[in-house]
């Protein structure tokens, strides 16, 4: 029987943020990578590596924050493999990215064998004091852990960096036309490698958010395609940070909605509910991106400094 009144609207909306956070991290990292002209399809692999590195470290040290730091390191370490393949060996980016995902999934399963069924230490919510008691706003906006706020801050920081700083200008230039950037004397490979590592670290944190907070436990392949959604999100957000944020919340909200609907027993087969967030998010972003679908000019092209 269906009983929509069983859904608590405040908890429901607050859940958007938790559901969206892994996606925000993975997508904003990949956005930076793609703005430098590199297409890294290994997001899923880097996320799952972050998920296990973060989980294992948090369990061993008892500190969730150390776990997130380890997740960032783990994701960045795996992304270095991708950077080596594509920037040094000049391998095809699509194939290397797919390999990275497959490798990450397998390697994380190996690392995680002894962590199945364990509960990780909990990361507490930030105490906003009396502010948290404000009706509606308090429970929705001010009842989260630090990583949620860090994710939003990261999106703002990436946007501001790309738009207002010289570093951001150079980064966009490398992605727009790597030959021209090279001719002006910018270190294309160095900038791209750094961006790839940043993307890896972000994906790692996103993955750890799933294993440490959202689920929270370790199972093989637990990122369940969020990395792929992050990739699609970047494209359909037209490589703009705030559209990524918007898309992530939309997706998070839909996931939350379908879970709640499943919980109250709506008479729609579970499979339809489970796939609806993916379909609806993509459809909305495709419609949004019709006007301004402009990929970075050098995206996915191999850079070789001739002479």
């Amino acid at each position: 029987m269906m009983d929509l009144s069983a859904i608590n609207p405040l908890l429901f909306i607050a859940g958007f943020f938790v559901a969206a956070t892994p996606l925000i991290f993975a997508a904003i990292g990949e956005l930076v990578v793609e703005r430098t002209g590199v297409l890294n399809l290994g997001v899923e692999g880097m996320m799952i590596m972050g998920a296990i590195c973060g989980f294992a470290t948090a369990v061993e040290t008892g500190s969730p924050l150390l776990g997130f730091a380890a997740a960032a390191l783990g994701g960045a370490a795996l992304s270095l493999l991708f950077a080596f393949l594509t920037q040094v060996m000049l391998a095809n980016q699509v194939a290397s990215g797919l390999a990275l995902t497959l490798f990450g999934l397998g390697f994380s399963a190996l690392l995680g064998q002894s962590y199945v069924g364990i509960k990780p230490p909990r990361l507490g919510d930030i105490d906003f004091g009396p502010l948290a008691d404000i009706p509606v706003v308090g429970p929705i906006l001010l009842s989260h852990d630090i990583i949620v706020y860090l994710g939003i801050a990261l999106v703002v920081a990436v946007w501001a960096t790309l738009k207002f700083t010289r570093a951001g200008l150079v980064l966009r230039a490398v992605g727009e036309n790597h030959d021209a950037a090279h001719a002006l004397g910018f270190k294309v490979k160095r900038i791209r490698t750094l961006a790839i590592m940043f993307g890896g670290a972000c994906a790692g944190v996103g993955g750890a958010y799933i294993s440490l907070i959202r689920v929270p436990q370790w199972t093989e392949g637990m990122t369940a395609g969020v990395g792929w959604i992050a990739l699609a999100l970047v494209v359909f957000a037209s490589w703009r940070p705030f559209r990524v944020l918007l898309g992530a919340y939309l997706f998070g909200g839909l996931v939350q909605l379908q879970l709640n609907l499943q919980g109250v027993g709506v008479a729609i087969p579970v499979e339809y509910l489970a796939m609806s967030p993916y379909v609806i998010t993509i459809v909305v972003l495709v419609v949004l991106s019709r006007d301004s679908n402009r990929a970075p000019g050098s995206l996915g092209r191999i850079f070789h400094a001739s002479h």
């Binding site: 966009r172 727009e176 036309n177 950037a181 001719a183 002006l184 000019g297």
Partner: peptide, 20 residues
């Protein structure tokens, strides 16, 4: 001044000049 212009199409004139 390069033969094949070393410019960035998606950017403004001022941004292009700033890069150089």
């Amino acid at each position: 001044v390069f033969q094949h212009f070393s410019l960035f199409d998606a950017m403004t004139v001022a941004e292009n000049i700033a890069l150089g």
